[in-house]
Design a protein around this nucleic acid. Structure first.
Length: 386
DNA sequence: TCTGGGGTCCTAGGACCC
DNA sequence: TCTGGGGTCCTAGGACCC
């Protein structure tokens, strides 16, 4: 039995997910630095030897890339060269020109995502989706068939065996490895799943927090991003442990009462959020960054085409998923990266491309277009079932 | 040659209502 | 005719996450 009050929550994170899926179909790339990102134009080329029929693939290299894409995933070999997620491909090309570049194939990743989640669900049905390659799992009440009713008196040992079984099931279903941590809450499980990557298995009890969590940089806490980490660093709080012992009044001055309280709780490893097994989307959007910045005056027609296309794609997404929305919004990013949004709420929800286009057009007219435009987006919020 | 695309949540001010 | 207070909705921006 799990003692009353003790929660066992796992965080499962697929290892270098997109890149690992690609290595399954291009095994010859195993061991080489590979990054995923950019557009469609760097598909591997296949040539067949006319004599033997043997197929050879030619891959694009980072050095061949030109454009505005970023890395979505890098293999561990590529990370060793200093490139990683969210880095611009042009910058990455300077660091690792010979790394192989592959375009993202989201349909394929979604298929593998479904497979690994189904495999987990078969053992532990209470899971919370955190995107394509991550889930939280509520382990309360999960028992493996080979576990006798009273065979395990230590819930943590049972949790370790469940985690092992989950890793084996994911591997069986996908051929891929993942990292799992089990902890008393989501916050700690999330941090801990990074501690032993790749192919990791970590058990983290509350008593382990000072030794294993406190030495980590604050940035490793989910919810402390670059801005907050920068401010904390300037205040002299580099590690989670330093933050845990911060003066609450000082934090309140710099972060506001609410966030200050959360920062301290997080640093102590406290988190009482539930595993949320079902949720409804709040908004659906489409956006695109242009290959070159467009001028409102000189590229009017091109902009208008793209704008209509975005509205049509959002409408198609709404229809496919069975939603209509009442708030229509646009997003614009200028060449200086400054970003503005405008939205408007309609009388009634819609999923009609023309109506979305009309409302979004009104929003667009409320923005002064004095700089060149880098990105255009359309969003529909305040969703309800159609 | 910096910096994608799809999301969620929070804050803060103003409108408007009672 | 000198100025309340609570609640809700709407909008814009920003931090953060995968």
């Amino acid at each position: 039995m799990t003692p009353a009050g003790l929660r066992l929550i796992a965080h499962l994170d697929m290892d270098a997910f997109y890149a690992s899926v690609e290595l399954l179909r291009y095994p010859e790339l195993r061991g080489r630095p590979v990054v995923i990102g950019g557009g469609r134009r760097h598909q591997p080329a296949e040539t067949a030897d006319p004599a033997t029929g043997a197929v050879t693939r030619t891959f694009a290299k980072l050095a061949d890339y030109s454009g505005r894409g970023v890395i979505t995933t890098a293999t561990y070999e590529a990370r060793a060269l200093g490139v990683g997620s969210a880095m611009g491909l042009m910058k990455a090309a300077r660091l690792a020109p010979d790394a192989v570049l592959l375009p993202a194939d989201f349909d394929r990743y979604r298929t593998y995502s479904r497979r690994f989640k189904d495999a987990v669900r078969a053992i532990a049905p209470r899971i919370e989706d955190r995107g394509i390659d991550e889930i939280y799992i509520d382990l309360a009440g999960v028992r493996l068939p080979e576990h006798d009713a009273d065979g395990y008196d230590d819930p943590w040992w049972r949790a370790r065996d469940v985690a092992k079984a989950l890793k084996a099931a994911v591997r069986e279903a996908t051929g891929l490895t993942c990292s799992i941590a089990v902890a008393p809450n989501k916050l700690l499980a999330k941090i801990a799943s990074e501690l032993d990557k790749p192919d990791g298995l970590t058990i983290l009890r509350e008593a382990d927090v000072p030794a294993r969590i406190w030495p980590l940089p604050v940035r490793r806490v989910n919810g402390i991003g670059p801005k907050a980490a920068g401010k904390l660093g300037a205040l002299g709080f580099g590690t989670v442990g330093e933050l845990a012992h911060a003066d609450p009044a000082l934090l309140r001055v710099h972060f506001g009462a609410h966030y200050a309280e959360w920062l301290l709780d997080a640093a102590q490893g406290r988190d009482d959020r539930d595993v949320v097994t079902e949720s409804e989307p709040k908004s659906i959007s489409r956006e695109t960054t242009f290959e070159r910045d467009l001028s409102a005056r000189h590229d009017r027609e091109r902009l208008s085409e793209i704008f209509t296309w975005l509205c049509e794609r959002v409408a198609a997404d709404l229809a496919r998923k069975g939603y209509a929305g009442r708030t229509i919004g646009v997003k614009l990013r200028f060449d200086d990266f400054h970003t503005v949004t405008r939205d408007a709420t309609l009388e009634a929800a819609t999923q009609d491309a023309k109506e979305i286009r009309r409302a979004a057009g009104q929003c667009l007219r409320r923005i002064e277009l004095r700089r060149r435009i880098r990105l255009l987006g359309v969003r529909v919020g305040a969703l309800q079932h159609a």
